[in-house]
Amino acid sequence: MIDIGSLRALAAIEQHGTVIAAAEAMGFSPSAVSQQVKKLEKEGGFAVLERRGRGVLLTERGLALAAYGRRILAELEELESTLLADPDKPSGSLRLVSFSTACRGLVGPMLARIGQSEAALEISVLAEDPREAVARVANGEADLGLVHNWNSVPLVIPEHLALEWLCEDVADVLVHGSHPLAKQSSVEPAELVDERWISTPDGAICNEALLRIFADLGRVPDIRIYDPDFATHIALVEQGVAVALVPRLGRPALPPDVAAVQVVKPVQARQVGLVHRRTMTASPGIRHVAALLREIAGSGVAANGPGEP
């Protein structure tokens, strides 16, 4: 009989390209993954991997077996999350990947509510970029992903993932209180072309959103500082070093010397959503977490508006 663990190992190798990468994704040692593959080859009576340089490739039969394996694993996951789960008592462990501001604005309040309830859920959280979150949920490394989709930088979601939009998150330009723009209620991109910026790292989705603001003007923002933490952006705006584009979700209280000005024409906003594999749609745990996040996002308490501290 073919072992489920061996099929999972083969599918991971196909997905990640090497035994080492598959082992890291599964949380096993490379030798353990290799043993699973050897066991599969012994049971099937044929080779599923062939060496190519320093890596490996799946044989024709290996590819076919991996394809069958993915379908079997998906059906098994659906079985475990529905028929074998009590719909009235969310329980078990879930792995959630979230971008950092959603960790503060949505995940924190959600974990607090679970801690105060009778739900026997254990949730581990990893903060990563939405693209990484989608990839981890898609390949089974995580169960849920909180992601964002800027109106100017679309996020690609694989077909086997379900996506639910939770809320819209507007981003404001933060300037020092002495800045000429500080007293304005809104600002257009043309008024920002000569500013010095602090941005998230090159290639990050929020960095791409900043670049897109000026695309129609034929200009590139003068980015002087790159830092992944919006708290650092706020601190440097307070010191008058630069201006920053910072979303409201999870944004801490702004210092007295920092003003938030909304960007218009167009408004800078991102949609915040929750992704999970479609095989997990009926999972009581998934449904419970989704309901809590939906409620928190809809309450409006997770974000600060432009004039709020």
Rank of each mutant, 00 (worst) to 15 (best):
T279G: 09
S100G: 04
G53L: 14
L63E: 10
T279C: 15
V241H: 13
E118V: 03
L144S: 02
V289P: 01
R95T: 08
R54Q: 13
A290L: 04
A67D: 10
R224K: 15
V125F: 01
V264N: 01
K183N: 11
P87F: 00
I114Y: 00
T18Y: 04
G69L: 07
I20N: 10
K89N: 12
Q268F: 09
N151P: 01
S178F: 04
K89T: 10
S29D: 09
V19Q: 05
R277C: 10
H148P: 01
Y68Q: 15
A67T: 15
I296E: 02
A182Q: 11
A64D: 04
P158S: 06
R51G: 08
E132D: 06
P255T: 04
I72H: 14
V134N: 00
S91Q: 15
A204M: 05
L126D: 04
G108A: 14
A66E: 02
R277N: 07
G62Q: 05
D257H: 11
E41T: 08
A269E: 07
V187W: 04
K39W: 13
P256E: 02
I72P: 01
A127V: 10
A182D: 09
R131Q: 07
P189W: 07
A162D: 00
S91R: 15
P30M: 08
L236S: 03
A297S: 10
L79F: 10
E60W: 07
E295H: 11
E118W: 09
E75W: 10
E78K: 15
A209G: 05
N304T: 12
E75D: 14
D169A: 08
R51Y: 09
E60Y: 03
L217P: 00
S199R: 09
H16K: 07
L111H: 09
V241N: 05
V173S: 02
E132W: 01
A209F: 07
A85H: 06
I13K: 12
L121N: 05
D202V: 12
R224W: 09
A85K: 11
P255N: 07
V56H: 02
I4D: 06
V156Y: 11
D172T: 08
T281W: 00
C103W: 04
F99K: 05
I114S: 07
I72R: 08
V147E: 01
S152F: 06
N304G: 12
V187D: 06
L192D: 03
A204K: 12
S283L: 04
A190D: 14
R54P: 03
L210V: 09
L166A: 13
R8H: 12
L293G: 09
K265S: 14
V33I: 08
G115M: 09
T101E: 07
P154K: 14
P90A: 12
L73W: 01
E60S: 14
L245R: 11
G145T: 01
E24T: 06
A190R: 14
A112V: 00
K38F: 09
F230H: 11
Q262S: 15
R136Y: 10
I13T: 06
V261I: 12
S299D: 02
A291T: 08
A25Y: 01
A269G: 01
G115R: 14
L58F: 04
E164F: 02
E238A: 15
